[in-house]
């Protein structure tokens, strides 16, 4: 019988606690985001590959730290709350489901458009040049169209159960994950 596959121990726990505490310090955060492999070695004695942080995490960080995107998200939230008051006044899961069923598609599509309008320029350039989409993506609007196809699928799979499921950092992450596949092509596909 195989040994239990558990990656436990005080070393990991200490690293995890220490990392979360250090990330509260702006200087550490900037250093880590600029040179994750170097910080990993200095602070945590971890030898990491050059690409220590995934492209998805980097893009998620860029978006969450982008003032313009945050402002757009806040304005968007106020707009949908005034446009679809049933979503914010729903007292039960049933009421929310009723309110959301008619609107969730439109809301998530608009959100995808907002994300694509705030992507870093270098990512947009890479998407335009990617082998998957070369010749098909000419502008940010084209990225939104590609994402919309994806979002339409997500809406079917992930029905919101609470208001926070409808749109959240997880929605941004879903879109970021998809963008990474669009940029680099599917990883793992065998020819």
């Amino acid at each position: 019988m195989a040994e239990r596959l558990e990656l436990t121990g005080p070393v990991f726990t200490n690293r995890a606690v220490s990392f979360m505490n250090l990330m509260r310090l702006p200087t550490f955060r900037r250093d880590f985001e600029a040179d994750p492999a170097g910080v990993a070695m200095r602070e945590f004695q971890l030898k990491l590959p050059a690409r220590a942080i995934s492209a998805s995490n980097k893009l998620l960080a860029d978006l969450l730290q982008d003032r313009a995107f945050n402002k757009w998200a806040q304005d968007f939230q106020m707009e949908i709350e005034s446009r679809y008051p049933a979503l914010t006044t729903a007292k039960t899961v049933g009421e929310l489901a009723k309110g959301a069923s008619a609107t969730v598609n439109d809301i998530q599509r608009e959100f995808a458009k907002g994300v694509s309008a705030h992507l870093p320029p270098d990512l947009v350039s890479k998407l335009k040049l990617s082998s998957t989409w070369k010749g098909q993506i000419a502008a940010e609007d084209d990225i939104a169209i590609v994402l919309l196809v994806f979002v339409a699928v997500v809406v079917v799979v992930v029905a919101p159960k609470t208001r926070d499921d409808l749109l959240s950092r997880n929605t941004v992450r879903l879109l970021v994950n998809q963008l990474e596949i669009l940029k680099s092509g599917p990883k793992g596909r065998r020819e």
Partner: peptide, 17 residues
């Protein structure tokens, strides 16, 4: 071990930042 900080960073982005 090469995934540890990537996962912790993701946790921080989603739940802490």
């Amino acid at each position: 071990e090469e995934k540890i900080l990537d996962v912790l960073y993701s946790e921080w982005l989603l739940h802490g930042y």
